[in-house]
Design a protein around this nucleic acid. Structure first.
Lengths: 217, 217
DNA sequence: CCTTACACGTGACTC
DNA sequence: TGAGTCACGTGTAAG
């Protein structure tokens, strides 16, 4: 549509900038009175066109080079920018309010937004590890037993942790007890020698999760 | 500065819109040939001024009502918006990286990146629900029993789902069996009447998660 | 008086 | 030829 490159070469801005290069008063003409206005007018128009040209430059997707269309496109673009910015700012606000799990919240429309006290508590709740055992059961099987205190998202984090390890999990069981405890039991297919390595791995991962490093803006 | 309210009342747009109310051809004038151009021109100017007026309307903080200044202000404003948006988008990107899943991934250097087939598989793996029962156990307790097929992240999603519901969970148990099944059992403190509502809620949430709606850019 | 900023009509040009 | 857009010079009102 609108064959760029050929079409526009006659257009005003192009031909305008070619011709419009100072023009002043070649002779010692009177230049007084009325005739001084016309050069003034020329400059006014020149400036106005420059500005319009500049406006066109900052607006992407300009279709018609029409003066009026340029302004219209600029208006639409400004509105679009304003909307985007408003939307994104809202998003940021929301994210800042409830740190990590905003994503989940936004993927589930109604249900979540209805009763939203603060399950996803903003103060990042690291996993508090109470006990960690890795026991070889023979038969290429390790029994991993984890006990930690129940905080918001503890279970989710545990799941993610182990899913990310890419282990050969035979069975996994997570139980949240009525009290404050979360028990996690996994049977993993792995050599007995990996016992200590795996334990280290888990400890390191949990420690990293609880790490209060990343900048608090 | 610039005494608003008095100053601008003589300005072009104001007086322009007062006078400019159709003007057409009062008599059966020839209106042919050249004279038809002048009305065309009038309309062109009119439209152009309208657009300029509209442009001024979407730009806050316009100081001088100058035509050229309006455009200039619009340009500056657009640039400002673009910068703001770019900045905020960067901020959002950064925040999204701090989300739980990504966090685990990025904060745990070696361990995860080493064996990272695609546990967090990009192709959203919806939860495939095989069975859902909500049974009143008396004593203000509901037993929720879920069976679904084991896919990547299924457990994580289930956890997030229930954490987000803000239910009074007495005990929760998730078990991944050696086969392809994931069993989820919860004891929830709730009135018997909420049975069907809760079931619906769970079904809806799972459906929403699996929904292939949101745009695939 | 001079300057600024505008709307107008007109001829030129393109599609 | 006819509709659309443009730059130009001019008259004019306000500061």
């Amino acid at each position: 549509m609108e064959n760029h490159g050929d079409e526009y070469k006659h257009y005003w801005e192009t031909q305008y900038f070619l011709e419009n290069q100072e023009y002043g008063s070649p002779d010692g003409a009177p230049s007084s009175a009325a005739s001084r206005n016309i050069v003034s007018e020329r400059n006014r128009r020149k400036q106005l066109n420059q500005r319009l040209f500049a406006l066109r430059a900052v607006v992407p997707n300009i279709s018609k080079m029409d003066k009026a269309s340029i302004i219209k496109d600029a208006i639409d673009y400004i509105k679009q920018l304003q909307e985007q910015l408003a939307g994104i700012q809202a998003e940021v606000m929301e994210m800042e309010n409830n740190n990590p799990e905003t994503k989940v919240r936004q993927q589930l429309p109604l249900l979540l937004r209805s009763h939203n006290t603060n399950i996803f508590n903003p103060t990042s709740s690291p996993i508090q590890l109470l006990q960690l055992k890795v026991t070889p059961m023979g038969d290429n099987t390790l029994l991993v037993s984890i006990t930690c205190s129940k905080r918001a998202d503890t279970i989710v984090k545990l799941c993610q942790l182990f899913e990310s390890f890419n282990l050969k999990i035979i069975t996994a069981n997570i139980t949240a007890l009525p009290g404050t405890l979360v028990l996690n039991t996994l049977f993993i297919e792995a050599d007995e020698k990996e016992k200590d390595g795996l334990k280290m791995q888990i400890e390191t991962a949990i420690a990293a999760l609880s790490d209060p490093q990343s900048r608090m803006s």
